[in-house]
Structures are given as C-alpha cells and as structure tokens.
C-alpha cells in the first residue's frame, strides 16, 4: 500500500508512524522495534552531556543507523525562553529545521501550556523552524498555531505515557473536520494498536507514540502490531467507511425469502 497523503513541511513520509526513542530496555531492542515498526520518523531530545563519557554520541550513531527522519523535541520545557533555547540547540545538533514543540503547563498531566505554545511557535516559525506543536484538540488554539506559522498540528490523544488512548473522540473528529488540509498527528497517550487504528480511521495523517511500544513486554512485537494497526486504519479511512446508524438494517436480502411460517 502506498502512503500518499499530506506532506509534512513538503516532506512526504513513507509510513504514517512516528516513534519515540525513549524508555527501551536496551539499544538493540530499540533498533528491533524501529525495524518492525517501519516508522518513518524518530523523535529524539537533548540532555546534558558528560564530555568524558560521550554517551550522546553513541546514541546519535544508533539513531543514524535507523534510517528515519529525525524529529527533535523540547520535552521538559515549561517556559517560552526554555523552549526557544532548546529548539535552537536542537537545530544545531540535529541539523534540522523540524522541532516537536512541547511547552508543558502542568507536571502531573503534562498538558500543554497552550498560551506559551502559541507564543513560542510564533517565535520559532519566524526564525525559520518547521514546528510540530504538541497541542490539545482545542480548535481556537489550533487556529492560532496555524496563524503563527505552523503547518502541522499534533493534538494529544491522552496525557503523555498514560496509554489511555483517544480521550476525546468528538474533539478529535471536530479537529479533523475543521482543518481538512492540515497534516494532523495524534501525539501521545496511545496504549494499544486499536487506538492507533481508530486515529487513522478518523482521518488523521500519522500517529506519534513511544511508551506503548517501549514499555511493552515485547517492544519489537508491539511495534509491528502498531505498524499493522496504522496500516489498517489508513486503508479503512481511504476506503470510505459506511455511516453508522441507530437501527438495524438486514444485510441478507429480504426479497425472495421463502414463506415458511
């Protein structure tokens, strides 16, 4: 099946799956998971480096071996300044204009601070970044992010790492309907492959997940399960699903039925 949907800042993705690189039990398990997921994008971050150990350099070699497009994040940033500075550092280290913009508003829910998010997105877009904002399904926030220069939106399914799935189906459906031409990615909160399939059936263009794969008992198998689910959901969306109805409708023809009573 060809994945021929919206491009992300002009870049078409080979598959609609973006996979995080955190929380795996080992680098080899991470590599196996990526292979079986067929993910087209790998999310990464920046953390303090110890000049002597150089662990970050080993990690970078591993990421390069995956053959994925790299999407650095600003995870853990709670302020506009922190996120802007982190984005600049990421652009230099990873040599990409792409940035997954996270401006977190609350440490328990990891809910985006949408006010800081819009402000930061505007600064970064004006500075030439191609921003992937981690947002909610709020339509007004989405409009402001687009006005700020974002060309992709990434609403959460549920809080990061929760595995709850799609908490607000109505809101996500409304977002898809409101922005039919904008690449939309469900980012965060997915727990099992059926969540991903549902997201794709809603017409979303990609999903981004990490914990559901990395913390599975068999991360590589779960990665493949998500790959199949994404493919199934995409195929279903493109096949134009039937409209649900409240009442039953017989699938077996009634006309011609033998009179036997």
């Amino acid at each position: 099946m060809n994945f021929d949907r919206k491009a992300f800042y002009g870049v078409p993705l080979e598959t609609p799956l973006m996979l995080g690189t955190a929380l795996y039990p080992s680098p080899s398990v991470l590599a196996d998971a990526f292979t079986r997921s067929k993910a087209s994008v790998a999310t990464v971050s920046l953390r303090r480096e110890n000049g002597v150990s150089g662990a970050g350099q080993d990690f970078w070699q591993l990421i390069q071996s995956l053959g994925c497009k790299v999407l650095p994040n600003t995870a853990g940033c709670y302020s506009v300044k922190e996120a802007v500075t982190t984005a600049h550092m990421a652009r230099e280290v990873f040599d990409t204009k792409w940035i997954k913009l996270e401006v977190i508003g609350h440490s328990d829910s990891l809910q985006p601070d949408v006010f800081g998010l819009v402000e930061t997105a505007k600064i970064l877009c004006e500075d030439g970044f191609e921003v992937f904002p981690y947002c909610t399904e709020d339509l007004i926030v989405a409009e402001k992010l687009l006005k700020a220069g974002c060309e992709v939106l990434m609403p959460w399914g549920a809080p990061i790492g929760s595995g709850l799935g799609l908490n607000n189906l109505y809101g996500l459906r409304a977002m898809r309907a409101a922005f039919p031409d904008i690449p939309l990615v469900i980012d965060a909160g997915l727990g099992v492959p059926s969540h991903a399939a549902t997201a794709m059936e809603l017409g979303y263009d990609a999903i981004l997940l990490n914990t559901a794969v990395a913390k599975a008992g068999d991360p590589a198998a779960m990665a493949e399960a998500f790959a199949l689910a994404v493919r199934a959901g995409l195929l279903a969306a493109e096949a134009d699903p039937m409209e649900p109805r409240d009442m039953a409708s017989p699938s077996t023809p009634v006309i011609g039925k033998a009179f036997l009573s």
Binding site: T21, L23, R47, R48, A55, A75
Partner: peptide, 10 residues
C-alpha cells in the same frame, strides 16, 4: 555553562 547532546526522547 550548559552542554547538551543527543538523547532519547518521545
């Protein structure tokens, strides 16, 4: 002085 390098992330 902060020095950061590539690290895993979601």
């Amino acid at each position: 002085l902060e020095v950061v390098a590539p690290m895993s992330g979601g």
